[in-house]
Design a protein around this nucleic acid. Sequence first.
DNA 1: TATATATATGGCTATATTGCCATATAATCA
DNA 2: TGATTATATGGCAATATAGCCATATATATA
Lengths: 111, 111
Amino acid sequence: MNKKLPSQYEARARIIKAMAHPSRLFILEELYKGERSVGELAEMVGADQSTISKHLSILKTEGLVFDERQGTTILYHLKCPCILNFIGCIEEVLEIKTQEHVEMVSKCRVR
Amino acid sequence: MNKKLPSQYEARARIIKAMAHPSRLFILEELYKGERSVGELAEMVGADQSTISKHLSILKTEGLVFDERQGTTILYHLKCPCILNFIGCIEEVLEIKTQEHVEMVSKCRVR
DNA sequence: TATATATATGGCTATATTGCCATATAATCA
DNA sequence: TGATTATATGGCAATATAGCCATATATATA
């Protein structure tokens, strides 16, 4: 990768990368509402169970979620609800992108 | 990709993905401090100028930065400073990951 | 113990990303 | 205009990611 940058950036990027996927983003927001099983999430996302399992594995490895066995099903939980705080800003970036030609007031710099 | 998820997740993920790289994260934080030229950033990151130019192109395409020509050099600016607000939470996730075995108090759920 | 259910993992292919080199483009200045 | 400086882009090889299928593992229950 790169040797001049502090490893801190590498560590942060790994976590952000774990969030940088539509399905994983959906999963995180869903877990924000409450615990969900792998099957529930697979059903909601509309992907193969194994695919969701792997997504959850990535989120777990990066420390964003934790799991809890409940009999034969496994419930996943969000670890740090704060990670979704910035979704508001992401939305703002998106708004500006779509309305770039329009005059608007916002916390972002339009140009 | 996936057809069951609202396109909103796709859009958000694209922006987050743009942030999900050590060099681009560094660039964003650097631009948070103030405007920087491509050359300056390349020097700081320690990567080829063309590599940084492409990173900046990604950030620009996703609406995270904008550029301003100043004679022969081009200065890049951060568009939405708020996108760095959640770095604090990322740090918290990292802390928990490294101290998982230790008892600690935090906004995150340790388990 | 045998069966059923829920989840995880190995393996594979298709696709995307990264980073460098070479080169193109754009602006400045002699 | 020609040379110089700064940045962008095309192209390519190496690597990483995504998603599905088949199958393994773990738990519960008859």
